[in-house]
Design a protein around this nucleic acid. Sequence first.
DNA 1: AACTAACGGAGCGATTCGCTCCGCTTTGAA
DNA 2: TTCAAAGCGGAGCGAATCGCTCCGTTAGTT
Lengths: 213, 213
Amino acid sequence: MTTRKDLTERNDRALLQAARDVLAEDGAHASVAAIATRAGVGIGSLYRRYKTKEELFQQLSLLSLDHWNEAAEQGLADSDPWAGLAVFIRGCVEFGQGSLAPVAGTIEVTREMSAKARRGDELLDELVRRAHRAGVLRGEVTSVDISLLIEQLGRSPLVDQLRKQGRDDLLPAAAEARRRLIAIALDGLRPGHDPLPGSPPGGELFTDRWSQQ
Amino acid sequence: MTTRKDLTERNDRALLQAARDVLAEDGAHASVAAIATRAGVGIGSLYRRYKTKEELFQQLSLLSLDHWNEAAEQGLADSDPWAGLAVFIRGCVEFGQGSLAPVAGTIEVTREMSAKARRGDELLDELVRRAHRAGVLRGEVTSVDISLLIEQLGRSPLVDQLRKQGRDDLLPAAAEARRRLIAIALDGLRPGHDPLPGSPPGGELFTDRWSQQ
DNA sequence: AACTAACGGAGCGATTCGCTCCGCTTTGAA
DNA sequence: TTCAAAGCGGAGCGAATCGCTCCGTTAGTT
């Protein structure tokens, strides 16, 4: 028997997924009305669950950080250092980790968020260190390189726009095409290539953006 | 000493570059006011040059197509098939080819635009065919794969957002970090890797999006 | 000095924003 | 069967922003 609580919970999940989708399509200007509509939920219900738009985005960020950390732990659980790293990257990219980029700097970062982010950094560091020790990751690649790669691949302009145009028929093909790009990028991370240009990127590139202006 | 004409021309160039930048940062919602301000030009001047916002975006698309074609011709002029392809990809990606994605489907496609796009397709096909013949490009990679890769890499969420936050001090480091990602992806295009997943993407993924809904 | 072309931006009506509020439906205890 | 309460969807509020027009000002030219 599905009662009130079930429906509420389903609505909440739908809201969060809708928020991710709309953010991906509309960027920083994503409107609450659009999010509610896509979730198939009234605006009133959205505002009963979250006091403000910012609170919704904060919750979304928390879930994304959780997903990042879970993917990293799942990767570390794999005994093969390369397979573990690849699982992590693929997991983050396909989850759409990059969709959150537009909200960086527009919401207040809670203590909980920075704690989870710090833990995520440590986990990724360990993944990278382990892969380097095993010699299965291209020498000069750092954790920051990987974070930026995930961000770069973590949005699909193609999928976002097809969805905006209502061409849902093309979505499976787009997802497959995207997986090919990810595979290409992952192969570029393997050893045996020429040295990378420039010097390894500093961590401030990735972390500073979340601090308020 | 033709100051008047010079200024007008400089303004026009500034407008187009500003439009590219703002489009990259704000996506489809980019406002004419933001574009004019970034270009250091009054709104009035913008509207003296372009009758409507759409006309500005059409001109921008034309220039992007021109750049694409010039980069492809420059690549074909290189006698080394791989170097030529790499020059083309790097040229398109660093130009910010991907910033235009948000306007796809929102402006009318002129006959001139589709003619140039068709020519671009042919040039890229030739680049890819030549590289395959020389055995310097991973076997299953198609022109569409490359187009999508350029689109995926042709925006930098990192750079866009740093600019939005006014962290101009970090821009050089961000550009360098980006060049590393591009190098990684290019290396993934070389032969000698496992087969790519899925089947080659169909051309409609890239072309259909520009036709009006 | 007089002319005028190009300039910047105030301000128009229309639209969209985040959010509040309320009438309606569903639920479950009385 | 009744009915208070809880949860729902969405109309509509004031504020903000949109694309664009229009005009007073500036600066090169004669």
